[in-house]
């Protein structure tokens, strides 16, 4: 157990054990906040942030390899773009009712129930994808990316 290669990556055993216990709860809480965005405080942005925090938590405790095996950079980038496109698509679908971002569900459901409020929960899901993947990517870039200053010609856009 100790001295293995996995042990050297990330933080101590105590942190890892606690992380293993809590990270699922954090993810679930994020999803809860996200899905109840239209009936209680919270929503897509807050839910997305909490979901991203669960992945950042794994990265802090176990190191980047473990975190990337759960959510790679390419996958995060894909999710981010998909979230944005989904959000615009919901807006464009509103044209079926005559207006951009029209709430096109005729049955808005019962107030304070989970399945209600038409497109708002769908918008929340799209926003949470964008925000969650975006926040994770920003964290990864701030932590991992290094710039060579005064180097030869590092012409790279990303």
């Amino acid at each position: 157990m100790s001295g293995s290669k996995r042990q050297e990556k990330g933080m101590t055993l105590i942190v890892k054990t606690i992380t293993r216990l809590t990270v699922g709860l954090i993810l679930l809480y994020g999803i809860y906040i996200l899905l109840h965005g239209h009936v209680s405080p919270g929503g897509g942005f807050a839910g997305g942030v909490i979901i991203a925090l669960s992945f950042i938590h794994i990265m802090l405790a176990y190191g980047k390899e473990t975190a990337f095996s759960k959510l790679s950079k390419a996958k995060a980038s894909l999710l981010e773009s998909l979230g944005a496109i989904l959000f615009i698509a919901i807006g464009i679908l509103g044209f079926t009712g005559g207006y951009f971002f029209f709430n096109f569900f005729t049955d808005k459901g019962e107030a304070f129930r989970l399945f209600s409020a038409g497109i708002i929960p769908l918008c929340n899901i799209a926003i949470s994808m964008k925000v969650g993947a975006g926040l994770f990517t920003i964290f990864v870039i701030l932590v991992l990316l290094k710039f060579k200053t005064g180097g030869k010609d590092p012409r790279q856009g990303s």
Partner: peptide
């Protein structure tokens, strides 16, 4: 422009 921007990224 928004749709084109994110499609571009995809």
């Amino acid at each position: 422009p928004l749709a084109a921007a994110f499609l571009n990224l995809l």
